[in-house]
């Protein structure tokens, strides 16, 4: 750290401190959501999403504190990989959770997938029946 703490450096420190606190709050929000939401699918929202912003803010504060230009590309790559992988894991868990009925149906105000699933199941059952006969 440079001895000059009144100028630009102070502002950079304040900005990165704010980023770190807000970013950590997002992770806290994820933890609270995991505890408080009622079923797997709504917990998935809490488990996967707030860290997208949380990680972004923490990486940005690392970038501000390191004070070298060459650390930014690697932070950006780390964030992009997070952007690419988070929806995939959320989708895989969500899909498996819906299929194995790990959800509270009484908490859904509308379900436009259920009819489609039942239709497909009925069709599969019919085809099984005709195959046997």
């Amino acid at each position: 750290m440079s001895p000059d703490s009144t100028g630009l450096d102070a502002w950079v420190d304040v900005l990165s401190a704010v980023f770190m606190i807000v970013g950590a709050t997002m992770s806290l929000g994820a933890a609270i959501g995991l505890l408080r939401f009622p079923d797997l699918l709504s917990r998935m929202h809490a488990a996967t999403k707030p860290q997208v912003l949380g990680l972004f803010l923490l990486l940005a504060s690392i970038g501000l504190q390191m004070r070298t230009l060459w650390v930014w590309p690697v932070l950006l790559v780390a964030w992009i990989f997070q952007l690419l992988t988070v929806p995939v894991s959320a989708h895989m868990v969500g899909r498996a959770g819906y299929r194995t009925k790990h959800l509270h149906r009484e908490l859904l105000t509308s379900d436009e997938l259920e009819a489609v699933v039942q239709k497909a199941a009925a069709k599969a059952a019919r085809e099984d029946g005709s195959g046997d006969g």
Partner: peptide, 22 residues
């Protein structure tokens, strides 16, 4: 939306209503 989710997690919690939309 992150702020909203934080708010929902703290205040609404287990009473949250969801939907599956096509």
């Amino acid at each position: 939306a992150s702020m909203q989710l934080l708010f929902l997690a703290v205040w609404r919690g287990p009473r949250v209503k969801n939907a599956v939309v096509a």
